[in-house]
Amino acid sequence: MRTFHNTLATTLVGLGMLVAASAQAQTYGPRDEGRRFNDGSRVECRKVEVANNARDQNRIAGTATGAVVGGLLGNQVGGGSGRKVATAAGAVAGGLVGRNVQGRNQERNGQRVVETRCERVYR
């Protein structure tokens, strides 16, 4: 029961910090462009080209495929406990390579959209 209370208290503290942080965060849109504040800062907007790869933004497919292939290749190396280490290392390395390959393909083949991004500038 004590563990439950500790977990609950930790969760509530974390949620409180998240709420406090989001209350301070301010977002600005194109209608705020040029708005000035008392501290001398102002809102500036600019157009940014953004890759819109909604299918697999976390690159899970490339990571998983690379990990499986890397694990299979690593399993071919060594014997005994060395084989286990090689399999694990191959899976990690393969996952990283697969994630990077998928990321490059998404950047090259992804749909591009232009968005207006606004931020508060302090000068």
Rank of each mutant, 00 (worst) to 15 (best):
D39M: 03
R59T: 09
G62H: 04
M17L: 13
R123L: 12
V68A: 03
G29V: 05
L72A: 14
G74Y: 00
T63A: 10
M17P: 00
A23S: 12
K84W: 14
V68K: 04
V48H: 05
V48T: 06
T7G: 14
K84N: 14
V48W: 07
G62L: 02
G34L: 02
N100V: 12
S41G: 02
V68S: 01
T3A: 14
V97W: 10
G98V: 01
A93Q: 01
E33W: 06
V85M: 04
A51G: 08
T116E: 03
N52E: 13
N105E: 11
S41A: 03
Q102W: 06
D56V: 02
Y28C: 07
V50E: 11
T63N: 11
Q26C: 05
A93G: 06
G110R: 02
A51C: 08
R59D: 09
Q24M: 12
R99W: 13
N100A: 12
G71V: 00
R46K: 07
N75K: 04
V97Q: 09
R99V: 08
A20V: 13
V50H: 03
G29Q: 05
A86W: 04
N6K: 15
A9V: 12
V50K: 10
Q26G: 11
R104I: 14
Q57P: 15
E115D: 11
Q24F: 10
V92C: 00
V13C: 09
G40M: 02
A89G: 05
L8K: 09
A9D: 13
R123G: 11
D32S: 03
Q76G: 12
R46E: 09
H5Y: 14
R117S: 07
N75M: 01
A86Y: 05
T65M: 06
G94S: 04
G66I: 04
N58G: 07
A20E: 12
A9G: 09
V68M: 05
N75E: 00
A86R: 01
L96M: 14
E44Y: 07
Q106T: 06
A86C: 08
T63Q: 09
N75W: 01
E49P: 07
L12C: 11
H5V: 15
Y28R: 08
Q111C: 07
G94M: 02
T7S: 15
G74D: 01
T65D: 02
V48G: 04
A20Y: 12
K47F: 07
R99D: 15
E33D: 10
R35E: 08
C118I: 00
T11Q: 11
E115P: 01
R112N: 05
V68W: 00
G82C: 02
N52R: 11
T10I: 13
Q57I: 15
G79K: 11
L8C: 08
R31I: 15
N109A: 08
